[in-house]
Computed example of a mutant assay.
Amino acid sequence: MGRSVRLFDRKKSRFKQQPKVLILCEDSKSGKRYLEDAAFHFRANAKVEVAHCGVTHPSGIVERAIARQKAFDKVFCALDRDTHHCFNRAIDLAKPHPKIKVIASFPCFEFWLLLHFGYNRKPFAAAGGKSPGELVAKSLRSQLLMEGYEKGENVSHFDLLKGVPFNTARTLSPRVLTDAANSGEPNPSTEIHLLMNEFEALSVPQSI
């Protein structure tokens, strides 16, 4: 007797298809490279596209997210507050779109890197002709391993800081964000840890 053709039927997957995620950021090198490497670390890279969208101001990034959202299940916009005049407009633009979530850093992404070295809630204000973001980068360069940090470098800072420093940042960032909410002063704080949580969640198969 021949075997039933049912034996050769392809088995249905027991897991949900992972969402397709887009991340847009204004930094075309160091920040973008960090997020790409973090996604790879969590084995989420196959479902995550980190793209610099050709504009370096918050509202332009959100506008690009709105234009591209149909092709994705989730869209994250990693935005720096710094001295951008259109930051609040960018937040408002994103609100009507459930797929789009702003991941804000005050004053900039480099504050997330700085949290790899310890708790910090000292505000960064423009001084000496330097923007708040530039002063965060200056503070970051005072830390071990980060002496040569430049925002525009295509260097894998994730690989440099993973392990204990990375876990330190993931622990401290929610505490900083809670303190910022309680005090009403977001400078400095960041939501980058929420992206790390998303990467980690994407690495875990979800049963149907």
Results as ranks from 00 to 15, higher is better:
Asp80Val: 06
Leu79Lys: 05
Lys74His: 11
Pro107Tyr: 05
Asn88Gln: 15
Phe109Pro: 00
Asp82His: 11
Lys74Leu: 09
Val102Glu: 02
Ala71His: 12
Cys108Gly: 05
Ala78Leu: 14
Phe76Glu: 01
His85Val: 14
Ile103Tyr: 02
Asn88Ala: 14
Cys108Thr: 12
Cys86Ala: 09
Asp82Leu: 10
Val102Leu: 07
Pro107Leu: 06
Thr83Glu: 15
Cys86Arg: 06
Ala78Phe: 11
Ile100Met: 04
Lys95Ile: 15
Leu93Gly: 03
Thr83Asn: 13
Phe109Gln: 02
Cys86Pro: 00
Cys86Val: 10
Phe76His: 05
Asn88Arg: 13
Leu79Phe: 09
Phe109His: 05
Ala90His: 09
Lys101Pro: 02
Lys74Gln: 08
Ala90Asn: 10
Val75Ser: 00
Val75Gly: 01
Leu79Ala: 05
Leu93Glu: 01
Leu79Tyr: 12
Ala94Met: 10
Asp73Tyr: 12
Ala90Ile: 06
Phe76Ser: 00
Cys108Met: 11
Leu93Cys: 02
Asn88Gly: 04
His97Asn: 14
Val75Gln: 00
Asn88Cys: 09
Asn88His: 13
His85Gly: 14
Ala104Asn: 06
Ala78Asn: 04
Pro98Trp: 08
Asp82Trp: 13
Val102Gln: 02
Ala90Gln: 07
Phe109Tyr: 08
Asp82Met: 13
Phe109Gly: 01
Ser105Arg: 04
Arg89Ile: 10
His85Asn: 14
Ala71Phe: 09
Arg89Cys: 02
Pro96Cys: 13
Lys95Gly: 08
Ala94Cys: 08
Lys101Gly: 02
Lys95Thr: 15
Pro96Tyr: 13
Pro96His: 15
Lys99Ile: 00
Ala90Lys: 11
Arg81Gly: 01
Asp82Gly: 11
Ala78Glu: 04
Lys99Gly: 00
Asp82Thr: 14
Thr83Trp: 04
Lys99Gln: 05
Thr83Phe: 06
Pro98Leu: 12
Cys108Asn: 07
Asp82Ser: 12
Phe87Arg: 12
Lys95Gln: 15
Phe72Ile: 02
Lys74Ile: 12
Lys95Asp: 09
Asp82Arg: 09
Val75Lys: 03
Leu93His: 04
